[in-house]
C-alpha cells in the first residue's frame, strides 16, 4: 500500500488519526488511512499515507488543527526514512 517516495504519518492515538483523516478528507486531499507498517512503532497501529506534492498542505492543515503526527517517514526502497521536523 506504500509506494516508493510516499510519506507515512504515524499517529499514536486513534482519536487524533480519525480527526486528522476527517479534516484532510474534507479538503478532498488524496490521503489513505493505512495500517502503520510493522517496521514502525505505533501504539494505535494507524497511519496516513500521502505523496510529496500534497505534503506541504497536509502538514500545514494538521499543524493548524494541532494534529501534527508523532512521526513522519518517507518510503525509500525497502526502508522508511524518518523525516526530521514535520513541515520542514
Amino acid at each position: 500500500m506504500i509506494n516508493d517516495g510516499d510519506y507515512v504519518a504515524v499517529f499514536n492515538n486513534v482519536h487524533r488519526v480519525m480527526k486528522a483523516e476527517k479534516i484532510l478528507k474534507e479538503k478532498r486531499l488524496n490521503i489513505l488511512l493505512i495500517p502503520a507498517p510493522r517496521a514502525l512503532k505505533s501504539d494505535c497501529g494507524l497511519a496516513i499515507r500521502y505523496c510529496l506534492a500534497d505534503r506541504p498542505v497536509i502538514e500545514a492543515l494538521l499543524g493548524e488543527a494541532g494534529l501534527l503526527p508523532e512521526e513522519i517517514y518517507r518510503k525509500q526502497g525497502e526502508e522508511f526514512i524518518r523525516i526530521d521536523a514535520p513541515g520542514a
Binding site: V14, M18, L32, L33, I34, P35, G45
Partner: peptide
C-alpha cells in the same frame, strides 16, 4: 459506527500486507 468503518477499512488494507 465511525470506529467500525475505520476498523473494516484498516482490516482490508492490512490484508494486503
Amino acid at each position: 459506527e465511525e470506529l467500525g468503518r475505520l476498523l473494516l477499512k484498516n482490516f482490508v488494507n492490512t490484508l494486503v500486507e
